[in-house]
Design a binder for these strands. Structure first.
Length: 585
DNA sequence: GGCTGTGGTACTCG
DNA sequence: TCACGAGTACCACAGCC
């Protein structure tokens, strides 16, 4: 046990002033909070625990007792350039923000630091207890997180509250040498700088036109019922003739059960190896029942996974959708998103047009143009790709021309589409077989394996730098890789080549988006323009109508500037639109 | 009999 | 159909009370 018994309960303004003055002497302070629940939009901030590095004394601010009169002093305190150390800072920052307190950089987040150090590895946990044990050899007292922080506090609760705060500066001191050793200082700074934008996105959320959404849901449900009954009647022929107590017409099969569906298909004479889309798609032309199944699946997914579930996420206080962004949720450095996952809302306008701005506001939406291909050009230093981007050429058209041997302006639209897919697939080492399958299924183009191989080798003849990069990576035997920003991903066993190629590309794109978000949070602070979402290469703002033009040019220039921070050979372009819904891009 | 957790499958997105 | 990276819903199954 770490007995941090030395705490001072601060419940009036005089004591607060004295405490903050005392803490101001320290270059580094640990910050923790206790709240009446987990939701910053409906629960309350109860305690703020502050401790100076090197001290075991913790000032525990009782926000219920202090009330609003504490806010100006706290705001001034957190505006100073001391290092504020948090664990899972996003949580505390959201509650502080709701209480009227913004926290200026520099912020150090021990959880993000730990996640960066282990990126790619499966580790037991990144909780404060885990880190205290691992890096400091301390066993923290657990079990008070979920206690009732809304009533009079017990001595046990106060001791628990004090304990976590004292650990934070110590953890930072232990983590910094590791970040240095792993070359992760810049990446850590980037992640910490990004926190404000993440807090914005979660607190702001996105507005859903709920009536419109429910109407869409009803339509889709009808579509699904039609698709289901059509499929059901086609499959029912499979069980006609089988012995049934009630008659075959009463038998239904569970359309969501792959086992039942496969049995039924086989007894209808469909030569299906399995029920995956990949295995069924080639059979759809010959067997109407297969086409019916694929159709059912598509619409069922949209109804069950998106349409029906989304309204339950509308927040009772704001009416808006507030997802959770996991800053290091993907091992490449990308965000992941859940509850709900707004990053997988179907692209169709019928879905995205239901996401709208507040009255008097516009959405301002921007995404990077071909960001991953540009990053691949920069990493591989391929002269042809770099030159094409510098001259503002259409890279897909160029690839089509190089592979077919046609002059650029004779390339057809179909060839350009095919080249688009090839650009995408081949930079991640898609094999000849994959290419062949892709060409057949997407464009109905039949080719032999040899022809696919020729196509592939022409691609790499055209882009020598890309080929050199592939060869260098595949012979390197490295157990880790880095993005251009220095972000690290490690493997414990021999990594797949595709992972070694994909991670620096996808991860550098993530570095760029995060840099842009960090810069935006600063640039937009106090302007009334809100950051409301981000989907991998896209950033969504909500701006008062009068400021939409300004927000739009700020968004575009900030995203492009963030790109230049990492890419020096290849220009970065962001395309921006002012819109009345997410469907307009 | 009903609950929970886990693995597999299939879909969505960039 | 796929190369990479994610999350969610559903089914089937094991283990438990």
């Amino acid at each position: 046990m770490t007995g941090a018994k030395d705490y001072v309960l601060v419940s009036d303004v005089q004591a607060l002033t004295a405490a903050l003055s005392d803490l101001s002497q320290s270059r580094v302070i640990g910050v923790d909070t206790e709240t009446t629940g987990l939701d910053p939009l409906s629960d309350k901030l109860r305690l703020v625990q502050l401790t100076a590095e090197g001290s075991d004394r913790v000032f525990i601010l009782d926000m219920f007792r202090l009330g609003d009169q504490a806010v100006p002093a706290l705001r001034a305190f957190f505006d100073r350039d001391q290092v504020k150390v948090f664990h899972n800072a996003k949580f505390d920052l959201k509650f502080l923000r709701r209480a009227g307190v913004t926290v200026a950089q520099p912020v150090f987040d021990t959880m993000l630091a730990s996640q960066l150090l282990t990126a790619g590895y499966q580790v037991a946990g990144h909780g404060l207890e885990d880190l205290a044990k691992q890096y400091l050899g301390l066993n923290l007292q657990k079990g008070y997180q979920m206690s009732d922080w809304s009533r009079d506090l017990t001595d046990d609760q106060l001791e628990y509250a004090a304990q976590d705060a004292t650990v934070l500066p110590k953890l930072r001191a232990a983590l910094i040498p590791l970040l240095v050793r792993h070359g992760l200082i810049n990446t850590a700074k980037l992640e910490f700088d990004c926190l404000d934008a993440v807090v914005d996105m979660e607190l702001n959320g996105m507005r859903l036109a709920i009536d419109r959404w429910k109407h869409l849901t009803q339509q889709l449900q009808l579509d699904m019922e039609r698709a289901a009954s059509e499929l059901q009647s086609m499959l029912r022929e499979a069980i006609v003739g089988e012995v049934s107590l009630f008659g075959a017409e009463y038998q239904t099969i569970n359309l969501d059960s792959t086992q039942q569906v496969l049995d039924a298909l086989r007894s209808l004479g469909v030569p299906a190896e399995g029920t995956s889309r990949a295995q069924l798609a080639p059979l759809a032309g010959d067997y109407p029942v297969v086409a019916a199944l694929l159709n059912y699946r598509e619409v069922a997914k949209k109804v069950q996974a998106f349409a029906e579930s989304l309204p339950s996420y509308a927040h009772p206080v704001t009416g808006r959708i507030h997802p959770t962004y996991h800053q290091l949720g993907a091992s490449t450095g990308r965000f992941s998103c859940s509850d709900p996952n707004l990053q997988q809302v179907p692209r169709g306008a019928e879905f995205r047009s239901c996401f709208i701005p507040d009255e008097g506001y516009k959405m301002v939406i921007a995404d990077y143009s071909q960001i991953e291909l540009r990053v691949a050009a920069e990493i591989s230093k391929d002269v042809r790709m770099i030159a094409a981007y510098q001259q503002g050429q259409d890279l897909h058209r160029l690839t089509a021309s190089l592979v077919t041997g046609k002059p650029i302006d004779e390339v057809t639209g179909g060839e350009r589409q095919a080249a688009k897919a090839v650009n995408f697939g081949l930079i991640y080492a898609m094999g000849a077989a994959g290419l062949r399958a892709y060409a057949r299924n997407t464009y109905g183009v039949e080719m032999t394996l040899e022809q696919a191989e020729t196509f592939r080798s022409r691609f790499f003849d055209a882009y020598r730098g890309l080929e050199r990069w592939h060869r260098a990576v595949s012979t390197s035997r490295e157990m880790s890789t880095r993005t251009l920003g220095g972000r690290l991903r490690q493997w414990r066993t021999d990594p797949p080549l595709t992972g070694l190629l994909n991670t620096p590309v996808q991860g550098t794109a993530a570095d760029i988006v995060k840099k842009a978000l960090a810069m935006l949070a600063n640039a937009l602070s106090g302007t009334g323009v809100r950051i409301i979402g981000s989907v991998h290469d896209e950033i969504i703002l909500e701006a008062p109508e009068a400021k939409a033009e300004w927000a739009s040019s700020t968004l575009k220039s900030t995203m492009e500037q963030a790109g230049r921070h990492y890419l020096t050979l290849v220009p970065v372009i962001a395309e921006v639109a002012i819109a009345d819904s997410w469907a307009e891009k």
